[in-house]
C-alpha cells in the first residue's frame, strides 16, 4: 500500500481498523501525522454534528403518541360499538320478522293452517312406506281411534305437531294421487269446512278429539276416502 492509497482510504473511512492501513501508518511517519490531523478533524466534525436536541423532545413525542393511541382506541371502540349495534339491530329485525311470520301462521284460520302444513311437509306426499295396520294403530290410538283394517294403501303415518297439540299425519294412496289425512286434536270446527288452494282441495270435519282434514289434489275422490276411513277406523270422525 502506498501513501496515496492510505490517505484515500482513511479519508473515506477514518475509523477503519483495517490491518493493512494500521501497518502502513506504523511504518510511514508522514501518514501517521496525516492520520493524527485527520482524527482531529473527525473529532471536530463529530462535535459540530452533535447538536443538542431541544429540551423535552422525548416527552413531546411520547405525548403526541399517547394522544394518537388514545384516539385510535376511541375510534376502535366506536367501530366495535357500531358493529355490535348493527348486529343487534339485525338480530332484532330478523327476530321480529320471524315472530310476525310465526304469529301469522299460528293465528291463521284452520283451513290455511292445514294447507300450510301440507305445503311445508310436501316431501311426505312422495313417501312409499307401505304402512302396516299395527304401525297405523300406534300413530292413531292416542286419539281414541282404532283401525280394524287399512282404509287404503297407507304410504306414510307419523305423529306430527299441530297448532295446539301433537296430531297425526297420514298419506293415503288416492285415485288421482296422494291424499293427506290430518288428525288435529284440540281444534274446534262447527261443521264441515271446505279447503282449497291452487293445487289442493278437501275439507275439515269436526270430531270428538278436534278435527279431521282430508285433502287431495284437485279432482280427487275424497268422499270415497272418507267412507273408507269411517268404515275401517273407529272413532275417526
Amino acid at each position: 500500500m502506498n501513501c496515496l492509497e492510505y490517505r484515500r482510504l482513511m479519508t473515506i473511512e477514518p475509523g477503519s481498523r483495517d490491518p493493512e492501513l494500521l501497518e502502513h501508518a506504523g511504518k510511514c511517519a508522514a501518514c501517521a501525522t496525516f492520520n493524527a490531523r485527520l482524527q482531529r478533524f473527525e473529532h471536530n466534525l463529530g462535535q459540530t454534528l452533535a447538536v443538542e436536541a431541544p429540551e423535552g423532545l422525548e416527552s413531546r413525542i411520547l405525548l403526541r403518541q399517547s394522544v394518537k393511541a388514545s384516539r385510535a382506541r376511541r375510534a376502535w371502540n366506536q367501530r366495535i360499538y357500531a358493529v355490535a349495534a348493527t348486529m343487534l339491530l339485525t338480530v332484532g329485525v330478523v327476530s321480529g320478522w320471524m315472530l310476525t311470520k310465526y304469529t301469522q301462521r299460528v293465528q291463521a284460520p284452520l283451513d290455511q293452517l292445514v294447507l300450510n302444513h301440507i305445503h311445508d311437509e310436501e316431501g311426505h306426499l312422495h313417501e312409499r312406506n307401505d304402512v302396516q295396520l299395527a304401525e297405523l294403530n300406534q300413530v292413531v290410538n292416542r286419539f281414541g281411534v282404532r283401525a280394524d283394517a287399512l282404509p287404503a294403501q297407507v304410504n306414510f303415518a307419523h305423529p306430527c305437531p299441530m297448532r295446539k297439540d301433537k296430531g297425526a299425519h297420514l298419506v293415503l294412496a288416492g285415485k288421482q294421487g296422494p291424499v293427506t289425512v290430518l288428525i288435529i286434536p284440540g281444534e274446534q270446527v262447527r261443521e264441515r269446512t271446505a279447503v282449497r288452494d291452487e293445487r289442493f282441495e278437501g275439507y275439515i270435519l269436526p270430531t270428538r278429539y278436534g278435527a279431521l282434514a282430508i285433502i287431495g289434489e284437485h279432482g280427487e275422490q275424497l268422499e270415497e276416502i272418507q267412507r273408507a276411513l269411517v268404515t275401517t277406523m273407529r272413532n275417526v270422525t
Partner: peptide, 9 residues
C-alpha cells in the same frame, strides 16, 4: 490538499 499533497509519494 489532504491527498494530493506534493510530499506524498
Amino acid at each position: 490538499d489532504i491527498v494530493t499533497d506534493s510530499k506524498v509519494k
